[in-house]
Amino acid sequence: MAQPDVGILAIQGDFEAHGRALAQLGARARPVLRSHEIAQLDALVLPGGESTTIAKGIARLGLGDALRAFADSGRPVLGTCAGAILLAKRAESPGTAHEPPPTLGVLDAVAQRNAYGTQVDSFAATVDGDAARGLEGLRCVFIRAPILAELGPGVEVLARVEGRPVLLREGNVMAATFHPELTDDGRVHALLLTG
């Protein structure tokens, strides 16, 4: 792809930060809110934000089918934090009575929301030494982050922090429980563009 056309789901969240990260890699990135726009893209990003809020927006705008169809088409998809939750086969809210949002079910993993705690438990960390080639030393910012668990057999762990998977890939679908868009390191976005 010479200059891939990347769409960022712009219902709510830090979609502009993703736009900046992708622009730095030479991609054409634009916010998308409509099924017909999603269908035309070369790659798709589900940004960070509030998973409940974004899930409600997906339902309100009737985008669920278009998003699932995009992922099923084999074109690259990246979800970060809230976006990763929405990609999972199911979301859970361990230890609370909170009702988890509906998810798209295109990644064979279960998302445990706010698994590290509230904002005072948010943190930054460097990936473990066993990260995939090219991702060594990646610094990750976790904001009210989820944990991805019960990984299916087709899910590859690209990076862990303190033993927990933080960057996963299943075929064309990639999920980060952290926010690569909030740091200057473009390696995760580069993976979206180059596979």
């Binding site: 712009a10 219902i11 969240g13 830090d14 934090c81 948010s122 910012v141 904001i143 009210r144 926010h179």
Partner: peptide, 9 residues
């Protein structure tokens, strides 16, 4: 970072 997550909301 958390403030960023509330954007557009």
């Amino acid at each position: 970072g958390l403030a960023e997550m509330m954007k557009g909301g």
